[in-house]
Simulated scan of single mutants.
Amino acid sequence: MKKTRWQGWGPSEQAEQHYLVHPRGLAGGGDVRHVSEFLRASGWRDRSRTGGPLAMESPDHTVRIAYDPYTRPGGWTIHGAPTGHGKEWATHLGRQTPVEIVAGLTDALTRPRSAHAPNVWSPLQEQNWRTRFEGEHYTATSPDGTAWVQYHQGADGTAMWWIGAKDCQGNGWTASLSPDTPMHLVQALSAALADPEPVMRPRGHVPPSEQIRTQSVSVRPSELTAWQQTRITAARAATWARSSWASAQPRNRRPATPGPYRAGADRRAGRR
């Protein structure tokens, strides 16, 4: 029997030109599925309507994530409902926020919180970002000056996190996070922004910027699929591990309640 080789794999597969982009903050939006497929694999529900914006909901219904490229300013909106652990919070990230940076925050929503106190500034200082006070604000700026993280306090006392990246031409994005946004999520976002690793973009999807450095690479579609699948498999494995651990824990059982005549019977038995 003659075997037929599937054209998507093997030597007949054609490599495609991609670019490694640095700094990652100026790489442009990227493929939204980098975020959404990981959330699906982590048990999140897809609430999107056909042809409409992306809408995802956490398994416990406390967090909603939406991506709308059709409106202005558009972009990512993440909303957390008030819970016993914290107040209501909201985050908005512009349309050109790289999905790898968005995923820094959204991936963290799928994991248990660390026992260590979060530190937003630590991952920035590790990458030699410059930190300073500017009036009522505290700001960290990347070594090349294209990205920043700022704790912004207004004259009326309101506060927020202001994060973003822009080149000399003004191309880029900004993100605003309410002051009640859980600190471990702000730290996850700052760590993803400060990550020195470049991100990959296909030909034709690299923003025109004099401050971007690129390296051309040839990538087979099967390699891209394998990399994406590795990320999804990791999410499924982590979700399965958490579910297995939770199901193995003993349930809290209430102590047996004596029947209406049991106590009296015990007292009578004690007098014998």
Rank of each mutant, 00 (worst) to 15 (best):
S190T: 15
P202F: 08
T174Q: 13
S218V: 00
E210C: 04
E197M: 06
G204Q: 01
Q169S: 13
W162N: 09
I163N: 12
C168G: 06
V186S: 11
T214Q: 05
A188D: 00
Q211A: 03
T214Y: 04
D167A: 01
P196A: 09
Q153S: 10
G164E: 12
A191Y: 05
S176T: 14
P198H: 12
R201P: 05
P182R: 14
P179I: 09
S216G: 00
C168Y: 05
W173Y: 06
A192L: 03
T181Y: 12
H205V: 02
D180G: 07
I212E: 01
A165P: 04
L177D: 10
P182Q: 11
V186L: 13
D167H: 07
A155M: 07
P198L: 07
A191N: 04
S190P: 06
A194I: 05
E210G: 15
I163R: 11
H184K: 09
M160P: 01
S176I: 11
L185R: 04
G172R: 09
L189E: 03
R213L: 03
L185I: 05
S178P: 08
S176W: 13
A194V: 06
P207M: 00
R201A: 06
H184C: 03
A188Q: 04
D167Y: 09
S176M: 08
A155P: 05
G170E: 08
G157N: 04
M200P: 05
S190M: 07
P182K: 05
A165G: 03
G164V: 07
S190W: 08
S216P: 01
P196G: 10
A192Y: 02
N171A: 13
A159N: 11
V186G: 08
P207T: 01
P207W: 13
G204W: 05
V186T: 11
G172C: 08
Q153Y: 05
M160C: 02
Q215D: 09
S218D: 14
A175D: 14
Q169L: 10
G164S: 09
P208L: 00
E197S: 10
V199S: 10
V217D: 00
G157D: 08
S216M: 02
I212Y: 14
G170A: 09
D195P: 07
I212W: 07
Q211F: 04
D195N: 15
T158D: 15
Q169I: 03
S178R: 13
R213G: 04
D156C: 02
S178K: 14
N171F: 12
V199G: 11
D195G: 08
C168P: 06
G204Y: 11
S218Q: 14
L185H: 15
P202Y: 09
A194Y: 01
Q215S: 10
D156A: 02
L185M: 09
K166Q: 13
